[in-house]
Each structure stands twice: as C-alpha cells, then as structure tokens.
Design a binder for these strands. Structure first.
Length: 987
DNA sequence: CCTCTGCGAAGAGGA
C-alpha cells in the first residue's frame, strides 16, 4: 500500500495488453467491456474499461457497497447494467450490476447451490456426480405430467380464487393447487389477503433460457400468465395481467432460500422476455403456492454469488513463474448439516489433499477436516494423488484452450449475418410446415428462408447434416430456444430434430447456429474422480493404470475355453495369420489386459472382429468401444456378417445406416414399455458397442462385462480411455503408438504429456503386448519406407502378391511420350520457386497443388481409376487449394483429405503434398515434426506413393530428413531442383 | 501456427 492508500493488486509494471482475437467486445444492451485496470481502495474499487478492441476510448466503473469484493481482474470481460454518466459507471447498493465473464452462462441451480457452499458449487461444475438412484426411467417425469395438463387446458380460463382442482389426464392423479392470495410488489405485501391471483394460462413448459446479459442459463418449469385482482375501497380496479416464472417442487415444502433464489434468478433470466418482478414457487405435495418477489437486493446478492462462482470456475489454474498449477478452491465448510449429504464429498477431499500436496499447507488442520480427509481419501497413496492432480491440471489447460475457441458466444454477440460469413450459421429462416413428433422429446422441424429477404442458397451455409445446432430468434432476444441435430440441408430448406416443439413461434424469424466444441472435459474429470473412488472397480483399475502393476496371465488355455466352444473357436482361428492367432491366445489367457499393436495394414478390424466372435463363442460378454462412431461401426459392419448379435448404443444420427437396426432406439420402437422389458433389452446381447463417451448410458449402472475392447486406443487420451474400462474385468487395447496420438490443443498440456495414451503408458509391460506385423496393404518398396522410419524392419508383407503388387496403368505408354515432349518444351517451369502461402485458414502451397493437378491428369489419362487415388496433406488449407483445381468431372472420385483423417484407411495410389516450403529461416510448424504423422502419411498407399515437397525445407524436419535419407540411399528420388523435389517410386 | 472427435441438459430429491 502506498501513501495514498492505493493497493496495487496487479503486478507492476502495467504493460498495455492486447485484447486476444477470440474476445468480442461491444457497447449497447449486451455490452462487453475489457478490464484494463483495477484500482482498489478501502471500501471501493475503480475499474478502467474499454469496449473497443483498439483499447480506447476508456471508461471507468466505480464499485462500492460490497461490489468492490467482486473478484474482477485485469483482462477480464465484464458486462455492466445500469447507466453511466460521461463514460463513468457507478455500481452500488441502489443501482447497477456488474456481471463478471458474462459469456460463461451459469445455471440457476449452480448459483443457488453456492449459497451454502461455494466450494460445492465449483466442484459441481467440474464433476458430474452420478446419482445414487437407478437412472433407468420410463415413466414420464413431472414436467411431462404438467405438459399433459397444458395440452388439456390451454386456452381454458381457469378461475382460481382460493383453490382449484385439476385432473391430470395421464396419471388420473388429483392435483390440488391452492393458490395463495398474492400482491405483485413489495409494498402491497401487507395487504396480500386483499389481492386475488388467477393463473389464466400456462404459456410454456420447461422453457430453455440463455441470458447473456446476466450470464445465466436455466430451464423454467412453467411460464404462467396470471391476473391480479386488487380490490380497493370496495370498488374493483381493472385487473393486472402478468407473465411470471413458476417453479414446481415435488418434495418437502421448505420454502428454502435455495428454492426462492432459483425463482429470483428465473425472473432475471426472463427479464427481456416479459420483465417479471416476481415469480411463483409451487409445492405440489401441499399444494401451497408462494409468491417470490424479486427485489433489487436479492438479485444483487445472487449476481455477486454468480460472479464469485464464475471467477473460481475460470481460474481453476494459475500461473506461477511460467508454470501452471491448480488453484485453491473456496475453503472447506465443516458444517455437518451441509456436508453430510453433499454429493461432492470425495472430490472435495481429493482436492484438498492435492492442494496440500502441491502447495504450502494452509492453516486447515482442524481435527474435523483431518478426519473427513482420512475417511474420503485414506485409501489413496501419493502416486494416486499426483496422477489425479497432474491430469486435472492437463484437462483444465486443455479446457481453457477449447473455451477460448468456443464459438457459442457468437450466437448472442454476433449478428446472424456476421456468423454466416464464418459458415457456422443460417439466419432469416422461419418454420415451414408442421412440427412432427419423432419420438419422446424429439421434434422434427423444417425451416425455410424468409422469402422477403433475397439471399443465397442454404447449402452454401457451411452447415451440414449431422451437425449440432442451436436455434435462437433472429433479433437475439430469445437465445438458445432449442438445440438438436441437423437432418437435411437442401438449397431451399433445412430440417432438424430439436429438443423442443417450436410450433408456437410460427412466423418468427430464426437463426440456426452450429453448436460445436461445447462438450468440455467433464467426462475426463468425472472419470479421473472415479478412478480415485474407494470401490472394487476403481481400486483394480487404479492399480493397473496408476501403480502400473504388471498384468498377469494364466498359462493353460483349456481352463478358459469351454469344451463346447473349442471346435467353433478352432474354426474361427483358421482364417488368421500367426501374430493374429497369438493375439487371440494372449487375450484369452489374460487376467488383466492385453495390448494389440496393429501396425499399418495388418488387419486390425478383422482381428478385433475375430476376437469378438471368439469371446462370444466362449460365452463371454464384451463391451466394444472406440473413440469415434465410425471406428465402432467399422467393426460392427464386419461382425454383422457373422452370427453374432449385438446392441449398439448411441445417437441414431451418428450411427452407420446399416447398423441402425441394432441401436437401442430402433429396438425400443419394437415395443418396450416396462422397466423389465427395458432391462431385458439391455441384458439380451453378450456384445454391447458404443463410443468411449457413451458410457454414461443407464445400462452401465448395472451391467458388467467380461471383456472391454477399445479400438484406436493409441488415439484416446487417458481419462477418456479409462471410462469404459470401469465396466469390465479385463480389457484389450488395440492401437499403434507409432501412429497418431490423441489430439491436444493446448501447447503446455501437450508438453506435460497429455498426448500420452493409456495404450502407450501400459506398453512398458511388454509381456502384455502382441504385435501384428504382417501386413496386406503396401508393396515391398512402400513398406520399406515405414520400416526404415519407424518399425526397424519389423513390418512384413503377408504374401508375395502383396509385396509385388503394382498400380496398373493400361495407357501408360501413350502418356509417356506426351510427357517427354512436355518436359522438353517447358523445362524451366520446374525451377520456379514453390513457396508456401499462409492464409487465414492455414498454410497451403499453390505450386504443389498445381503440380498435383498435373500429376493426377497424367495418371488418370494413363488409366488409373480416380476412386483408387487419394491425395493427402498435413494442412487443411492445402486440401482446399487442391480441391479447387480438381473441379472437372474427370477427377470425380479422387479423395482429398488430411493425413489425420486418412489414418486407418488406404488407397492404391496416394499423392502426398508436404506443403511446407519456406525461405531459409521460416518457422517450422508442429505437424511435420511428428514422426507418427509422417508414418501415417507414408503407409496409406498400397501400390504407389508420390510425395511432393521442397527438399531444402523438409530437411529441417527430423522425421522427414530421415525419410529423405532413406529415399536417397535407395535411389528413389527421381527429380530434384533448387526449390522442389518430386520423389517417387518408379512404376 | 492451425491436426479435430466426442456430447443432452439444468435440475430432480433424500435427509
């Protein structure tokens, strides 16, 4: 503190910071200010702000009467409510609100749960705790019940004076609703008995509200229209009409501060829709209706809580001396009443243990806390705690990068026109035709462009079928009305399935925004937390994953093979090669786990399919998973041909059409009405298949499997990969750590090892590893590249036919003569520098693209089928510039894609464009530094591989350098100039 | 510098 009493909270010197690209600032109603400086004085705080990315002009905001406690920091984005005079705002007891990080929408229940324990609310945001009850439900929830009576009574004027009786058609249950006499504002409270409130209409049920103004979100049980009749001096005044949120509670009538706060928050969220000054709280057990008046004071205090909560959620990682670490959470509350039934006790204790572990211990050493920690985490040893905290940190780092990229805020901060330019939005559409109910809670909508506004077609919008979408109104008042999936995009209309029926908005102009990247890392965190649980499943997995206990095997196959299955198994094994058979044997003998290394082209899918068949024949149950839907379905498509039944879990939209009949969705359509029928469906098949993220399905609250198989395991991060493993006694991971690792966007997280898969971690136990090294894809020369780069000669051809297979080019000779004349006429062309260009969307190389175009023309002319050709590049932008040259119909069928996307696939002929070609000292990108990406790139071709790139630049990448050396040694580089090389394998 | 797939969700209620 200096002599003025100014407390400098930020580190001096104050460097003027640039506003990051992803931050959107604005003035006006949804204003977004960037905090340039925070000046604290006793009793108040002054912020220096700007809503312009150029950092001027600046404004100030004075925070006092408690607002100065808001944990706002330099570099935060805030929203201001109230008014300003001459660019200076005042937020105090009477007026104004400060909303910290308003684009992080916090749910009403999170805030109300923070009233008693802020720590619990923060933990609740990180860890989704699975409820202790059975989550398999068929019976409609309360809201469907209410929905039913809305159907029956909409339009009916209900005369509710003192009490009213409603019949609920679905349950034949009698609901008695006593309607309390109620005055709508505070001053009337004393004369409540004089006012009569009538609910005249139920305007909406389970309305979804996103309120970017207050940084809130929630679902409002009932939106009710009410009439307030206030007699005065015997004479009747005209009744007042109001629309208010009504919160239903089926439990005990507590009228608790949490319940009332929820209602107050709903009044804030719906401020822009109908500006309610109060809401209703209805307890169905007693039928009592409580009015909840939303005073400025209540709203103010709740928003302060929200600000504290959002601060903790956002600052879960802090940086010290260039190194990140987990931040401390709000203090532990040791109130037996509150803590006793808290669902977060384990995480609360875990977090305390790891924060002590990492930081200098705080003063908490009370016996109560000690006992609590002992009880919850006594079973964990230091390695467990450090695994947990390490991965928590990695996940938070990664989440922060994803958050920065998260485009959801564009839905309310950008106009539809602006978003359409990014190709992530379609604006100016309205409902066309009726809304169809597809199934429970799935409503099929069709939208059309508003004809009054002439615009380009919808197919160019960038939205494609299968995308997740959010529907909002065009004006930005009704944000996040519904979410769902796009089904079909045609030139004139768009259809999608939504979670709400929007038919009452006919005529309203909508915008549809793609809703990507909002998954977050809650599955990761929840899995990590689960790994630390004190229970059998978790203890065993923790031993294997964290302690790296060596896996055990038995030696006698006959003890696991049922006698009656022996012949079948022997029969199935016949089609396999040696290493594949070995893999089968190893899995059967394993007591813990097996790792199958599937080198390129070695028949991974076939192997897994066979493995499932064998396990099935032995009567073992199998949980079959992978990270992607397509990988899961690939195996199932093969499995389908044999007589192996299975149940496929997952969104129908994402499942392969041929697998659809096996999904839960289509099974349920055949008639599942009771809980036991549903259980039957879930238990019927020995084989269940889903993605790693699909494990929160209710089936897993009960069922356990003998084996869990995870395909693509080397591409899955540890916290996700372990998810399905909780549900099986033994597991099999299939992958190849020499191919692509899990994608990690955050640089620091990657450097701290987040891209190490479980497959790789466990690989140190070589006794658990079987290698599939016999491949049926590449011919001998192509295979030699990979062998010299990665596999040290381990890769073998499965047959002489594979080894010698060549591309057939029936018209080669005529093209050759043409080619030689071409070279003679334009020899200097190849000496033109082929420099890369850095554009908005990434890096590309137009010269390489042109060269590839030429190569393709020649090859196709020589008789190569376009569908046998794949063009790959590490950079997405390069695909665009190549595809742009391949518009002619002659090229239809040529598949242009990234290296990453080609993993697991092959083509007869592959042309690889390396793209990078910089002048001398240009910076090197990350992509080509990865050995594994290069390995994938060169192992996609069966018969011919053409690589196009600049040798001088590429030599700076260690992996490519090694490859080039090999090519040179083997005399495989056929052409080279100063700036360009065209290595190729002779035909 | 730039590779990309996952996913329902806020809130239900027991003391």
């Amino acid at each position: 503190m200096d002599h003025d009493g100014v407390l400098v909270t930020q580190e001096k010197p104050k460097k003027p910071r640039k506003v990051p690209d992803h931050v959107i600032l604005s003035g006006g109603r949804n204003n977004r200010y960037w905090v340039l400086d925070v000046e604290e004085r006793p009793g108040h705080k002054t912020l220096t702000l700007t809503c312009s990315k150029s950092l001027h002009p600046t404004e100030t905001c004075l925070l006092k009467d408690g607002w100065e406690m808001t944990p706002v920091r330099r570099g935060d984005v805030v929203h201001l409510e109230g008014h300003s005079e001459g660019a200076s705002w005042v937020v105090d007891r009477e007026q104004g609100f400060l909303v910290l990080l308003p684009d992080s929408l916090i749910s009403g229940t999170s805030i109300s749960s923070s009233i008693r324990c802020m720590r619990r609310a923060v933990l609740g945001d990180m860890f989704k705790v699975k409820s202790f009850t059975n989550t398999i439900t068929i019976t409609p929830c309360l809201f469907m019940l209410v929905g039913c009576f809305v159907d029956c009574f909409t339009g009916l004027r209900l005369m509710l004076v003192h009490s009213v009786t409603l019949y609920c058609a679905s349950s034949r249950e009698l609901l008695q609703l006593k309607i309390f006499l109620w005055g709508h504002c505070l001053s009337c409270r004393g004369q409540d008995s004089a006012a009569v409130v009538m609910v005249t209409e139920l305007a909406d049920i389970e309305e979804n509200v996103w309120s970017p103004r207050f940084g809130l979100k929630g679902k409002i049980d009932v939106t009710a229209r009410i009439r307030i009749q206030r007699p005065r001096n015997g004479s009747h005044r005209t009744p007042e009409e109001k629309t208010v949120p009504l919160e239903l509670k089926t439990g005990k009538e507590s009228n608790s501060i949490e319940h009332r706060s929820q209602v107050i928050l709903y009044t804030l969220m719906s401020l822009e829709r109908y500006n309610p000054e109060a809401g209703l709280l209805l307890y169905l057990k007693t039928g009592n209706l409580h009015p909840v008046v939303a005073s400025h004071m209540d709203r103010r205090e709740l928003l302060k809580l929200r600000n504290t909560l959002v601060h903790h959620i956002h600052n879960c990682v802090e940086k010290e001396a260039e190194r990140s670490r987990l931040s401390r959470l709000p203090d532990i509350l040791t109130n037996r009443q509150t803590c006793q039934y808290c669902p977060q006790t384990r995480n609360c204790a875990l977090y305390e243990r790891i924060s002590k572990f990492i930081q200098i211990s705080a003063d908490v050493s009370e016996d109560v806390v000690h006992d609590f920690l002992q009880q919850e985490t006594g079973h964990l040893r230091p390695p467990h705690l450090s695994y947990f905290s390490h991965w928590m940190l990695l996940c938070f780092l990664e989440a922060s990068t994803m958050e920065a990229k998260n485009g959801r805020k564009r839905v309310w901060l950008q106009t539809a026109e602006e978003s359409e330019k990014n190709g992530s939005c379609v604006g100016n559409v309205q409902l066309s035709g009726p809304v169809m109910v597809q199934s429970e809670g799935v409503f099929l909508h069709r939208f059309q462009r508003n004809i009054a506004v002439p615009q380009k077609g919808l197919t160019t919008s960038g939205l494609a079928s299968g995308d997740r979408v959010v529907v909002s109104d065009q004006e930005g008042l009704l944000v996040g009305l519904a979410t769902g999936y796009l089904c079909e995009v045609s030139r004139t209309s768009i259809s999608c399935t939504l979670d709400r029926d929007l038919s009452k908005f006919s005529g309203v102009l909508f915008r549809l925004d793609s809703d990507e990247g909002v998954v977050g890392l809650s599955t990761h965190l929840t899995n990590l937390s689960r790994l630390m649980e004190n229970c059998q499943d978790s203890d065993r997995l923790r031993e294997l994953v964290v302690d790296l206990r060596p896996p055990e095997f038995i030696f006698n196959l006959s003890s696991v093979l049922p006698r009656e299955a022996k012949d079948t198994v022997a029969n199935i094994l016949k089609g396999l090669n040696k290493p594949q058979k070995q893999a089968m044997k190893k899995v059967l003998l394993s007591l813990d786990y097996t790792l199958i290394v599937g080198m390129p082209g070695t028949g991974k899918t076939t192997t897994i399919c066979t493995l499932v068949r064998i396990l099935h024949a032995c009567g073992f149950s199998v949980l079959l998973t992978s990270y992607t839907h397509s990988a899961v379905d690939n195996i199932l498509l093969k499995l389908k041909r044999f007589r192996v039944g299975f149940l496929r879990l997952g969104q129908g939209q994402k499942v392969h059409p041929d697998i659809l009949p096996y999904t839960e969705e289509s099974m349920r359509k055949k008639g599942v009405h009771t809980l036991s029928e549903l259980e039957q469906l879930y238990n019927k098949e020995l084989v269940v298949a889903t993605t790693c993220m699909g494990i929160k399905h209710p089936i897993f609250t009960r069922r356990r499997f003998d084996f869990c198989i995870v395909d693509e395991a080397s591409q899955i991060s540890q916290p996700i990969c372990m998810g399905p493993l909780f549900y099986a006694k033994k597991f099999v991971l299939v992958g190849d750590h020499q191919q692509l690792p899990p994608i990690v966007q955050n640089q620091e997280a990657r450097s701290l090892g987040m891209d190490e898969s479980l497959f790789k971690r466990l690989e140190l136990h070589s006794e658990a590893v079987v290698q599939l090294n016999v491949q049926y894809r590449m011919n001998r020369q192509i295979m030699s590249l990979s062998n010299s780069l990665m596999y040290e000669g381990q890769l073998e051809c499965g047959s002489e036919r594979t080894a010698t297979a060549l591309l057939s080019l029936p018209f080669l000779i005529s093209v050759q003569s043409e080619l030689s004349s071409y070279s003679e006429t334009e020899p200097q062309h190849d000496l033109v520098p082929a420099l890369e260009s850095v554009e908005q969307g990434g890096i590309s190389n137009h010269t390489e693209a042109a060269l590839i175009h030429k190569l393709l023309s020649l090859l196709i002319k020589a008789g190569c089928k376009p569908s046998d050709i794949g063009v790959i590049a590490p950079y997405r932008q390069q695909l665009k510039s190549i595809s742009a040259l391949l518009q002619s119909s002659a090229f239809t069928g040529v598949e242009v894609n990234t290296v990453d996307r080609y993993q697991g696939r092959d083509k007869s002929l592959i042309i690889l464009s390396f793209v990078r070609s910089t002048a001398e000292e240009g910076t090197l990108g990350e992509l080509l530094k990865d050995w594994r990406r290069l390995n994938v790139a060169i192992t996609r071709a069966k018969h011919k591989l053409l690589m196009v790139g600049s040798v001088t630049t590429l030599r700076r990448y260690a992996p490519v350098e090694k490859l080039l050396n090999h090519l040179q040694r083997e005399n495989m580089i056929s052409f080279q100039s100063a700036h360009k090389a065209l290595p190729s394998i002779p035909l």
